[in-house]
Simulated assay, not measured.
Amino acid sequence: MSKLQRLPASVGNAESTPIAAEKLISGNPTNMLNNMFTNAKENFFCGVWSSTEGKWELNYTEDEFCYIISGKAVITDADGQSETVEAGDAFTISAGFSGSWETIGEVKKFYAIYEE
């Protein structure tokens, strides 16, 4: 039987997830990941992620839905087009996206990831 699972806006049981040195562009960000749900097929995940200030390269193999809980970030695609996202913004990033993520100060988001 399925049940409703609420996801608190917390990184309480989070794991530190460092940025690989070869992807780091600037800063020394600390990322925290609290994955709160993984489906039976292990291809759908959701939870809360946060980061301190820094900038790194992105190369998405998954589709992701994000909702910014607090803070601000700048996402730039491979063509140099930038979007600023901040608290209250919801957006998706599709598999195949490449570019960069820059956290301004600190940011926290809900995420839902689907992988083929």
Results as ranks from 00 to 15, higher is better:
residue 2 S to Y: 14
residue 5 Q to M: 15
residue 7 L to V: 14
residue 7 L to A: 09
residue 8 P to N: 15
residue 10 S to R: 01
residue 12 G to E: 10
residue 12 G to D: 08
residue 12 G to L: 07
residue 14 A to W: 00
residue 14 A to Q: 01
residue 14 A to N: 01
residue 15 E to R: 12
residue 16 S to R: 13
residue 17 T to A: 12
residue 17 T to N: 10
residue 17 T to H: 10
residue 18 P to G: 08
residue 19 I to Q: 04
residue 19 I to E: 00
residue 21 A to L: 07
residue 22 E to Y: 05
residue 23 K to F: 11
residue 24 L to T: 02
residue 24 L to V: 09
residue 25 I to C: 12
residue 26 S to G: 09
residue 26 S to Y: 06
residue 27 G to T: 03
residue 27 G to E: 02
residue 28 N to Y: 03
residue 28 N to P: 05
residue 29 P to D: 00
residue 31 N to Y: 05
residue 31 N to V: 11
residue 32 M to G: 04
residue 32 M to F: 09
residue 33 L to C: 07
residue 34 N to V: 00
residue 34 N to A: 09
residue 34 N to E: 11
residue 34 N to M: 05
residue 35 N to F: 03
residue 35 N to R: 09
residue 37 F to Y: 14
residue 38 T to M: 07
residue 39 N to D: 14
residue 40 A to E: 15
residue 43 N to K: 13
residue 45 F to S: 04
residue 45 F to N: 02
residue 46 C to S: 10
residue 48 V to L: 07
residue 49 W to F: 08
residue 52 T to C: 08
residue 54 G to A: 14
residue 54 G to N: 10
residue 55 K to G: 01
residue 55 K to F: 06
residue 56 W to M: 00
residue 57 E to V: 07
residue 60 Y to A: 10
residue 60 Y to F: 15
residue 62 E to M: 10
residue 64 E to H: 02
residue 66 C to I: 04
residue 67 Y to R: 06
residue 67 Y to V: 07
residue 68 I to W: 00
residue 68 I to P: 05
residue 68 I to V: 15
residue 71 G to R: 05
residue 73 A to M: 08
residue 73 A to N: 01
residue 73 A to D: 03
residue 74 V to S: 01
residue 76 T to A: 01
residue 77 D to H: 06
residue 77 D to I: 06
residue 77 D to K: 05
residue 78 A to W: 02
residue 78 A to E: 10
residue 78 A to R: 10
residue 79 D to Q: 12
residue 79 D to T: 11
residue 80 G to V: 03
residue 83 E to M: 15
residue 83 E to G: 03
residue 84 T to A: 15
residue 85 V to W: 05
residue 86 E to Y: 09
residue 86 E to Q: 15
residue 86 E to A: 13
residue 86 E to C: 11
residue 88 G to P: 03
residue 88 G to V: 08
residue 88 G to Y: 08
residue 89 D to H: 06
residue 90 A to H: 02
residue 91 F to Y: 14
residue 91 F to P: 00
residue 91 F to W: 08
residue 92 T to G: 09
residue 92 T to C: 11
residue 92 T to S: 08
residue 92 T to A: 07
residue 93 I to G: 03
residue 94 S to F: 10
residue 94 S to H: 11
residue 95 A to D: 00
residue 97 F to W: 05
residue 97 F to A: 02
residue 98 S to A: 11
residue 98 S to K: 15
residue 99 G to V: 00
residue 100 S to P: 04
residue 101 W to P: 03
residue 102 E to V: 07
residue 103 T to W: 02
residue 103 T to A: 09
residue 104 I to N: 01
residue 105 G to L: 12
residue 106 E to K: 05
residue 108 K to P: 04
residue 109 K to M: 09
residue 109 K to E: 02
residue 110 F to K: 02
residue 110 F to P: 00
residue 110 F to T: 01
residue 111 Y to D: 06
residue 113 I to S: 00
residue 113 I to N: 04
residue 115 E to K: 11
